[in-house]
């Protein structure tokens, strides 16, 4: 089998512009953003509050409709993509939010299995088995049948990581995943995420303000007022 062509990156943005509002209230948030994430690459996105990091993440994650620019995510072109196409693309992306957003009425295992229910390839038994494995991989094999309310904040975020990874995503998007955790736990959780993603060759785009986790990145990208200020980790 041929190796994947080098130029096929999971994320490729060129000249992306984005503005909220219309007319008088129109507010340009992203300006000519270029971003390329290579296979298996872990990119950390930093920048001052309001610089447009979250907006960029929602665009890449197909949670918002693109307005202008060229964007290919996991091989799909985002500009002009229909709602249905975006919904399908989201299934191939793992999201990790600031809050875990687990379904409170489901157990940890059922929560993780939810990300597999959209894929008809798996049977119920396979889904639960796989969810169990994923929870084992994040060190929660003793908490499979607990509900989120019975878990600590760090444990919940680890369930969220297991959920994001269970569906075999081609990309992980995380927005301040440590914000709701204490420093120690936050660092552990992100390290776990990094190790699991690396082991599977899944690229990560992670937004953070936390300077302690910057060293986990292959590359750090700075944003300021909607523009990219690229800085290599080695030279930082």
């Amino acid at each position: 089998m041929d190796a994947a062509p080098v130029e096929l990156s999971p994320v490729e943005l060129r000249g992306v512009n984005f503005a909220y509002g219309e007319g008088e209230l129109r507010r340009q948030v992203l300006r000519e953003v270029d971003l390329r994430i290579g296979p298996g690459e872990i990119v950390i996105l930093t920048g001052p509050s309001g610089s447009g990091k979250t907006t960029l993440l929602t665009l890449i994650g197909a949670l918002r409709a693109m307005q202008e620019g060229e964007a290919r995510v996991l091989g799909e072109s985002l500009l002009g993509a229909s709602e249905g196409q975006r919904v399908r693309l989201r299934r191939r992306i793992g999201f990790i939010f600031q809050n875990h957003n687990l379904l409170g009425f489901l157990t940890a295992r059922q929560n993780v299995a939810m990300s597999l229910e959209l894929d008809g390839r798996h049977s119920e038994a396979q889904r639960l088995a796989r969810a169990g494995q994923m929870l084992g991989a994040v060190g929660l094999s003793d908490h499979l049948e607990k509900q989120p309310a019975q878990l600590s904040g760090g444990q919940r975020q680890r369930v969220a990581i297991a959920r994001a990874l269970a569906g075999d995503p081609g990309l992980i998007l995380a927005d301040e995943p440590t914000a709701a955790l204490d420093k120690q736990t936050g660092q552990e959780v992100v390290r776990l995420l990094r190790d699991l993603a690396k082991g599977r060759g899944v690229p990560i785009l992670l937004v953070t303000h936390d300077p302690r986790i910057l060293d986990l990145a292959d590359r750090i990208v700075d944003m300021e007022d909607g523009r990219m200020v690229q800085a290599d980790k080695a030279s930082a």
């Binding site: 089998m1 994947a4 062509p5 096929l8 990156s9 999971p10 290579g38 296979p39 298996g40 690459e41 996991l74 091989g75 799909e76 299934r91 191939r92 229910e117 959209l118 894929d119 008809g120 390839r121 075999d168 995503p169 081609g170 990309l171 690396k198 599977r200 060759g201 899944v202 292959d218």
Partner: peptide, 29 residues
């Protein structure tokens, strides 16, 4: 990046650009 052992998630085989269809493509239930 260490060479991944299995098919990369964004490989053409996965997103339908490959000539050979993937063995078990993602499908709706």
């Amino acid at each position: 990046v260490p060479p991944p052992a299995k098919l990369l998630p964004w490989a053409p085989e996965r997103n339908g650009e490959a000539v050979e269809p993937p063995p078990a493509p993602r499908r709706d239930p």
